[in-house]
Amino acid sequence: MIEVYSWPTPNGHKVHIMLEECGLAYRVHPVDIGAGEQFAPDFLAISPNNKIPAITDADGPGGQPISLFESGAILIYLAGKTGRLLPADVAAKYEVLQWLMFQMGGVGPMLGQAHHFRIYAPEKLPYAIDRYTNEAKRLYGVINKRLAHTTYIGGASYSIADIAIFPWLRSWKNQGVEMRDYPHLKGWFDEIAKRPAVQRGVEVLAGVRKPLTDDKAREVLFGKRQVQQH
């Protein structure tokens, strides 16, 4: 049984979807990031960066327990554990991994900033809104161009690259993007959204999701509380 410490965010959904796609038994432990539960000592012992998601697997490598944080690392681990959604061929594997890194280093951070300045920031700063909205549109363009030449983001087969990117694009309206402007991406997005495992994955913890725009949540997520932990 894999223990999953998570919340219904794009990074959380990545792991939920992967577990569903792989058919692994798991148990979810909600970590209410707006209430500061990510700072609990037991969670920090697993995820020292105080971010969700994190997992523990009692049946890790060599039958020994393992804990992991960082959603990209978790996707790679689960792919290795199950032999699924990451090609065995070396060249194909690295083609997928480069797009996973594209998500981790670009899509997630930049779209996260677009969300922050467009929705969460108490002061609306036109420069920041324009900067990250434009970057969101650029990233959508990169993905659209890629999907004009290949069926899936990582290549010919569905993979952890698709699983990593899809949840971040579900909030395209909040990012100031018009999905219809990216027809290849939209076709891919609509296909991924129909997958039963994806539909199950995005529903994990959906019932506990709440707005993160009140002053307490802002302080926990973006204010002094973060600095005080280190």
Rank of each mutant, 00 (worst) to 15 (best):
Ala79Cys: 04
Arg138Met: 04
Ala148Ser: 12
Ile153Asn: 06
Ala156Ser: 15
Leu97Pro: 04
Ala91Asp: 10
Glu123Ile: 12
Val208Cys: 01
Gln38Pro: 03
Ala121Leu: 08
Leu169Gly: 04
Ala197Thr: 02
Ala25Phe: 10
Gly154Ala: 06
Leu85Asn: 00
Leu24Cys: 11
Pro65Val: 12
Val198Ile: 05
Asn49Val: 13
Gly80Cys: 08
Val227Glu: 15
Glu178Phe: 10
Tyr132Arg: 08
Pro65Leu: 07
Arg209Val: 12
Gly34Lys: 02
Leu85Arg: 04
Gly36Arg: 02
Ser6Arg: 02
Tyr127Pro: 07
Thr133Leu: 08
Gly201Leu: 03
Asp89Ile: 08
Gly108His: 05
Met101Val: 13
His115Leu: 15
Trp168Asn: 13
Pro167Gln: 06
Met179Leu: 15
Thr9Glu: 04
Asp59Phe: 05
Asn134Thr: 13
Met110Phe: 13
Met179Trp: 06
Arg209Met: 13
Cys22Asp: 05
Asp130Val: 02
Asp190Ser: 09
Glu3Gly: 03
Lys173Met: 09
Ile143Pro: 04
Glu37Asp: 15
Met104Ala: 12
Ala148His: 01
Ala161Cys: 00
Gly83Tyr: 02
His13Lys: 14
Trp99Tyr: 09
Gln103Pro: 03
Trp99Glu: 10
Gly108Met: 07
Phe102Glu: 03
Pro122Leu: 12
Val220Glu: 09
Ala88Pro: 00
Asn50Gly: 06
Asn50Val: 08
Ala45Asp: 01
Leu100Glu: 05
Phe189Ser: 09
Arg218Ile: 01
Leu139Phe: 01
Ile33Asn: 05
Leu111Ile: 12
Ala128Pro: 02
Lys194Val: 10
Arg170His: 12
Glu135Cys: 09
Ala54Asp: 09
Met101Gln: 13
Lys51Arg: 15
Val90Leu: 14
Thr133Met: 05
Ala217Asn: 08
Ile163Trp: 11
Phe117Asp: 03
Pro10Lys: 10
Gly12Pro: 04
Glu70Trp: 05
Gly62Thr: 01
Ala217Gly: 10
Asp89Phe: 01
Trp188Cys: 10
Glu203His: 01
Thr133Ile: 03
Ile143Glu: 06
Glu95Thr: 08
Lys93Gln: 14
Gly23Ile: 07
Ala148Cys: 00
Gln226Cys: 11
Leu86Tyr: 00
Lys173Arg: 15
Leu24Thr: 07
Glu3Lys: 14
Thr82Asn: 05
Phe222Val: 03
His29Asp: 07
Ile163Phe: 04
Met101Glu: 05
Glu191Arg: 14
Ser171Gln: 14
Ile153Leu: 13
Val31Asn: 11
Ile33Arg: 09
Leu125Arg: 12
Gly83Asp: 07
Met1His: 13
Gln229Ala: 15
Leu44Gly: 01
Ile160Phe: 03
Gln103Val: 07
Lys186Pro: 00
Val4Pro: 06
Gly141Tyr: 01
Ala156Ile: 07
Ala197Pro: 07
Asn134Gln: 14
Val28Gly: 11
Pro211Lys: 02
Ala40Ile: 01
Tyr77Pro: 11
Lys194Phe: 01
Leu19Asn: 12
Lys51Ile: 04
Lys145Tyr: 00
Ile66Lys: 10
Arg146Gln: 14
Ala114Met: 06
Ile2Gln: 06
